[in-house]
Design a protein around this nucleic acid. Structure first.
Lengths: 193, 193
DNA sequence: ACCTGAACACCGTTCAAGT
DNA sequence: ACCTGAACACCGTTCAAGT
């Protein structure tokens, strides 16, 4: 049976979900697929590129989402769906953050474009819109990396920091803070009515 | 000559500055200190703990900073000083982000406390203040990780994404966005005058 | 108390050689 | 075109034994 990119990404996602990012190694992945480690390098030029493909798979439900309505609803929706997508895979936020930093996730770039469009519709000028969109991105990724890290602490039996009572509400607080900030910024650029 | 924690942290910082986080390994560090790798485990229980100590060293100038003035100035100042501290070491942001996620940086926790105090002084209730402080933290770390990652791309000769013309100004935009958001949130809690 | 030496169980990546 | 086998140059961590 021939090895295909899709099979590799699927197997990698399975390891991630079941064992976490620390166990997602090229050798372990090859073993799971019953091939030699070198075989993976026929299909991917590096581990980073492979992880980028996994990141794109994780983010695909966010990209598939419709993008209509008021700008603030669009930002909220992307934020919430993004966090959901990350949380549906063990260490999903960490993997996506790493792939984004390495410039290996096309889907991450696409989500940033959509956030930028929503910010622009709020009435922020283009130059600042990209920066504001990134701020939202950093927030969602940072919050979720943190959230998933705390899960590991609990699993490891570290009861020093108790888990948040209502993480969904906590997440919404920061998101609203950003949207409030955008509303203020936009009002400076608004035409005098 | 006896090996002390301080020497180890100093040597680790030197490797970080000169070669980056990828080269900051326990074995490499031991070689540089002319000891066997096992010797490091007498002074530190794990690599994560050692990196946490390096993170604390990187963040120490931020903790030493005075903390007076209007709440918004205090947040700006911590943000700017934090970014400066991270940027004065190769991969500084990545190292601190990792140590924070692992719960190994005491200095990071202290900075978060200071940010929370500033947010509280803005007139935000305690529960939300911690969340808002974290939002600022995620922003500064996310922005700077990104900024330092782009430096590596340039060094590697990837001219696809041109470097930002004025990163200091770009950084200020996101910071002001957050402060504007805090002002709005605070006004809801403000006593009717 | 502090450190060495050596081992254990791994890594990512490359590449001649096979089919 | 696609993959194997084997190597290269590494990792973090542990622990008996030395001083």
């Amino acid at each position: 049976m021939q090895l295909h990119k899709r099979d590799v990404i699927e197997a990698a996602t399975a390891i991630l979900d079941n064992y976490g990012i620390a166990d997602l190694t090229m050798r372990r992945l090859a073993r799971e697929l019953d091939v030699s480690p070198g075989a993976l390098y026929w299909h991917f030029t590096s581990k980073q590129q492979l992880l980028g493909a996994v990141a794109d798979r994780i983010l695909s439900p966010v990209c598939a989402e419709s993008d209509i309505g008021h700008w603030s609803d669009r930002i909220s929706r992307v934020g919430v769906r993004l966090r959901d997508a990350l949380r549906s895979h063990t260490d999903g936020a960490e993997l996506v953050a790493a792939s984004f930093a390495a410039g290996q996730s096309q889907a991450a770039a696409e989500i940033l474009v959509r956030l930028t469009a929503a910010v622009t519709d709020a009435g922020i000028e283009t130059g600042q819109a990209v920066l504001a969109a990134r701020t939202v991105w950093y927030y969602v990724l940072g919050f979720t990396v943190d959230e998933q890290a705390r899960l590991q602490w609990d699993a490891a039996g570290a009861s020093a920091v108790p888990p948040a009572a209502d993480p969904d509400r906590d997440f919404a607080v920061g998101l609203r803070l950003l949207i409030d900030g955008l509303t203020v910024r936009a009002s400076y650029n608004a035409p005098v009515s």
